[in-house]
């Protein structure tokens, strides 16, 4: 199958996605930052019960917090993006790509029919998917397409 067909046909749930990092509404932003650092998370989902209320990303950490006069005891909802665009795990990877391109998002939360959080897909997941759908030898080519080696490797 060509790479473009794989992209158009694959469903989001077929990707090996990492489980999302979730926090409850009302969590102090300082705690959220510590959690992101500890879990090396690119984003956290803010939930009320099992329902998604917002998203807070690395970009928000720089834009709204670091080096700014912020009270780290303030609740996360003052800093999150409320009601983010979401997808369903049965949606196509292609759709995630389209939304990321049009909306400039790097993370899209996944929710199922009853509004429960099911995960998050990131731009990195899509790049990994693309990389996997190339034959290995493609990536072992020299970095420049017309690069020629003068001598055999190791000589």
């Amino acid at each position: 199958m060509s790479v473009e067909d794989a992209l158009r046909e694959a469903k989001i749930r077929e990707l090996p996605l990492s489980p999302p990092v979730c926090v409850a509404m009302g969590t102090q932003v300082g705690e959220v930052l510590e959690l992101m650092k500890r879990r090396r998370a690119h984003c956290v989902l803010i939930c009320e019960g099992e329902h998604l209320r917002g998203i807070f990303t690395e970009r928000d950490v720089v834009n709204k917090i670091l080096g700014l006069p912020v009270d780290l005891r303030a609740p996360i909802e003052s800093f999150m993006t409320p009601s983010p665009v979401t997808l369903h795990p049965e949606d196509r990877v292609w759709e995630a790509m389209r939304l990321m391109d049009e909306g400039g998002y790097r993370h899209i939360p996944l929710v199922v029919e009853d509004g429960r959080v099911a995960g998050v897909i990131s731009v990195q997941d899509i790049i990994n998917f693309l990389a996997e759908h190339f034959p290995t030898e493609v990536f072992n080519l020299p970095p420049r397409s017309r690069q020629v080696f003068e001598a055999p490797e190791g000589a």
């Binding site: 930052l33 510590e34 992101m36 650092k37 090396r40 690119h42 690395e58 970009r59 950490v61 720089v62 670091l66 080096g67």
Partner: peptide, 11 residues
């Protein structure tokens, strides 16, 4: 990067 900012500056 943003990542570096989070890991180096938080806490």
């Amino acid at each position: 990067t943003e990542r570096g900012a989070l890991l180096q500056l938080v806490g």
